[in-house]
């Protein structure tokens, strides 16, 4: 039910206060999305959309976090292992 899908803003079609609306591309499917809750979102940004409403602008740097954490964790574990061998 709380399913939300990331999509890319193609164009902004209305700037009315309660109905700021964009055309958003979800892997080729285009839908109109209400942007009132993401006033910072602009064309080209990826937004997370739930029932026709954008809830968040996706942070492209933070999107790498899960991979970065994995690399750091494995580096740490390797250095610990090589440290063990020395001692």
């Amino acid at each position: 039910m709380c399913l939300a899908i990331p999509g890319k803003i193609k164009s902004i079609i209305s700037d009315e206060p309660l109905s700021r609306t964009a055309r958003v591309d979800f892997g080729g499917t285009i839908r109109e999305v209400n942007l009132v809750c993401v006033p910072e979102a602009k064309i080209g940004d990826y937004v997370l959309v739930h029932v026709g409403m954008a809830l968040s602008t996706i942070d492209e740097t933070e999107a790498q976090q899960v991979f970065r954490y994995l690399r750091e964790m494995e580096d740490l574990s390797e250095s610990r292992e090589s440290g063990d061998e020395i001692s």
Binding site: M1, C2, A4, L18, S19, N34, V36, C37, H50, V51, G52, M53, L55
Partner: peptide
Amino acid sequence: IGFETTAPANAMAVMQ
């Protein structure tokens, strides 16, 4: 219906 995720959209509908 819904959790906090859906509340803004439902609220927005009533406001519109």
